[in-house]
Design a protein around this nucleic acid. Structure first.
Lengths: 83, 83
DNA sequence: AACTATAACGGTATTTGTATCCGGGTATAG
DNA sequence: CTATACCCGGATACAAATACCGTTATAGTT
């Protein structure tokens, strides 16, 4: 095994994360928030829709900063089910 | 340009993150902590040494949980310099 | 002194995934 | 009919995460 593909659980976790981020964005546009976080609008949209299931730590950190939410809060809100 | 290579600043940021994680690990072994966080020891070592500069969000979240440190704290400690 | 075990480092190779750009599609508002 | 905002899918350079190899250093044992 070199690098195992993402499990369905990991996909779900990514969707949860995206959903929380989308809620935090509120009325602001994707373009505006993405620019403020220093990333492309395409990337933010894919994160919000869960198509990027395991985004980089600093990418999420920049978003959390712009959206004024806690990273720990994000992590908890994204945990799908206890093992 | 499709995906720009990591900048020297991003590399430095990764080294800072790794350094903080290493300090938080303390006396515990890499193998023990990696197992507890659900990742391979190789990956944890590369994160700690900065060779993986932009690790995944959930990877760091799992480590922070095992090491009992805050993600927000980690993010702040890894921010190199204000633009 | 020789041997054994644990811990960490460095490099290579591999598969999978991120982050980006591009073009097109839909819907709503002015 | 122009503008804004969102979503989808393809294409692509670059990186994460894993495994395997050897190397070094320290500590404990025989």
């Amino acid at each position: 095994m070199v690098r195992p593909p993402l499990t369905p659980e990991e996909r779900l976790r990514g969707e949860q994360l995206g959903h929380t981020l989308r809620q935090a964005r509120g009325e602001r546009s994707i373009v505006e928030v993405a620019a403020a976080a220093g990333m492309s609008a395409e990337t933010l949209r894919k994160i919000e829709t869960g198509r990027i299931a395991t985004p980089a730590f600093f990418t999420i950190a920049a978003l959390a900063d712009v959206l004024d939410i806690s990273l720990d809060h994000l992590a908890v809100r994204s945990t799908p089910a206890p093992t």
